[in-house]
């Protein structure tokens, strides 16, 4: 079965200019990600992981190079079209959640539906509730974001990324601020979503979380230095068992 390309980048570069200093955050990144993949991106701090994900997520634009999303040339889209792409095709999960403060979980999750222009979502509250149930927060929907733990806030952010039923989910260190147990829960949630057909790209520092993915891309100094299929994928049960093992001296 020939798979469809969801993400295709050609010679993608991103240079940050700070006065005289130029930072080459990404250099000539060629990458293809197909429908249904679950990719983990790894690399040292400052290697350009977030920069790459922001460009893929249409939150930032490359300095040069090409980016096609679902065969659409993103470079040629204007601001409004980009906003619509973010709204309809992408669910982005930030390391720092980026939820609205003083706002309930439900209202946060409902937000992408408010900006929907296709008119395909009729009962936004119901959909938001379903998304929250999906991440296991059915009993917290009316809590304000500041009344939730870090793991719960991240689940709200994930629910928000899921609510408009996007084909592509992008997550920037979704478990970065969480304890090991919560991290494994989130990783398992991604596996379930992937099993339902979502394409997922996830940045992570933790090898045991990356091990949940199907494919691993390794970045160094803004270039891809390795790209391989993960043979022995981790599962929730395995990871939890590993967790209980005594630390070897």
């Amino acid at each position: 079965m020939p798979s469809k390309k969801v993400i295709e980048t050609k010679k993608l570069s991103r240079i940050f200019k700070n006065g005289e200093i130029e930072v080459h955050a990404l250099t000539d990144v060629d990458m293809v990600i197909e429908e249904g993949e679950f990719v983990a991106i790894m690399g040292a701090s400052g290697s350009g992981k977030s920069t790459l994900l922001h460009i893929i997520g249409c939150l930032d634009r490359p300095t040069s190079g090409e980016y096609n999303l679902d065969d659409v040339r993103v470079n040629e889209l204007d601001k409004n079209k980009l906003a619509d792409v973010r709204n309809q095709k992408i669910g982005f999960i930030f390391q720092s959640y980026n939820l609205l403060s003083r706002t309930t979980a439900l209202e946060n999750v409902e937000l992408p539906l408010i900006y929907d222009r296709t008119g395909q979502f009729s009962n936004t509250k119901e959909l938001a509730k379903k998304a929250l149930e999906q991440v296991g927060l059915a009993d917290r929907i009316y809590h304000k974001t500041n009344e939730l733990s870090g793991g719960q806030q991240q689940r709200v952010a994930i629910a928000r990324a899921l609510v408009n039923n996007p084909a592509l989910i992008l997550a920037d260190e979704p478990t970065g601020n969480l304890d090991s147990k919560s991290s494994i829960d989130i990783a398992d949630l991604f596996v379930q979503l992937n099993n339902k057909g979502k394409t997922i790209v996830m940045i992570t520092h933790e090898p045991e979380i990356a091990q949940f993915a199907k494919r691993m891309i390794y970045l160094r100094d803004g270039r891809i230095i390795s790209d391989k299929i993960i043979e022995d994928r981790s599962t929730k049960e395995f990871a939890l068992k590993e967790l209980e093992k005594p630390v070897t001296p």
């Binding site: 980026n98 939820l99 900006y115």
Partner: peptide
């Protein structure tokens, strides 16, 4: 500052400038 971040959040999930 707070509001700019809020605007960033709204833009990130697909709000248009005009919204």
């Amino acid at each position: 500052t707070e509001r700019t971040r809020e605007i960033g959040t709204r833009l990130a999930i697909g709000a248009r400038e005009s919204d």
